[in-house]
Amino acid sequence: MSLGPAAIAAAFLAACRAELDVVKPGNVHRFAPGHGMEAATFEAAAAAAAPFIAERGAGVGARILGATRASWAAVGVNANLGIVLLAAPLAAAAETASGRGTEPLRTALAQALAGLTPTDAEGAYAAIALASPGGLGETAEHDVRQPPSIGLVAAMRLAGDRDLVARQYADGFAEIFDIGLPALAAADAAPATPGLGPALAAYLAFAGRFPDSHVARKFGAARAAALRRRMAEFAADFGQVTEPADALSAALAFDAELKREKLNPGTSADLTVASLFARFLAEA
Rank of each mutant, 00 (worst) to 15 (best):
L196S: 03
D212K: 03
A202F: 00
E175Q: 14
G220K: 04
K218G: 08
S213M: 04
A187P: 01
A216S: 14
L181N: 08
I179K: 10
A205M: 00
R217F: 03
P211A: 00
F173K: 01
L204N: 00
Y203P: 00
P182W: 10
A185H: 13
K218S: 12
G197N: 09
S213P: 03
A185N: 12
F210Y: 15
K218E: 04
F206Y: 15
S213I: 02
E175R: 13
R217D: 01
F219E: 14
P198I: 08
S213H: 09
A207G: 09
F206K: 05
E175K: 00
D178V: 01
A183F: 07
P182A: 11
Y203D: 04
Y203F: 15
G180N: 03
G197R: 08
L196Y: 03
L181R: 07
A221M: 14
A190Y: 06
R217A: 05
A201W: 08
F177Q: 03
G208S: 05
A221R: 14
A186L: 08
A205Q: 01
L200Y: 08
F177G: 07
A187D: 02
V215Q: 09
I179L: 15
A221H: 13
G220M: 13
T193R: 13
A190T: 06
A186W: 04
L204R: 10
D212R: 05
P198K: 00
A192M: 02
G220P: 08
A221V: 12
S213N: 11
L181F: 10
A221L: 14
A189F: 02
T193C: 11
S213A: 15
A174T: 13
R217Y: 02
A189D: 15
D178W: 02
P198T: 10
I176C: 03
F210A: 07
S213R: 04
A189E: 15
D212H: 05
A187G: 01
A190R: 14
A174I: 11
A216D: 12
A187I: 01
L200Q: 14
A174L: 11
D178M: 11
D188S: 15
P194G: 11
G208T: 12
P194F: 13
A202Q: 05
I176K: 00
G197Y: 03
F206G: 02
T193H: 14
R217C: 02
F210C: 09
A186E: 15
G197H: 09
G220H: 12
D212Y: 05
A190P: 10
I179M: 14
A189W: 02
A186P: 04
A192I: 02
A192Q: 14
Y203I: 03
P182Y: 06
A189C: 07
A202K: 06
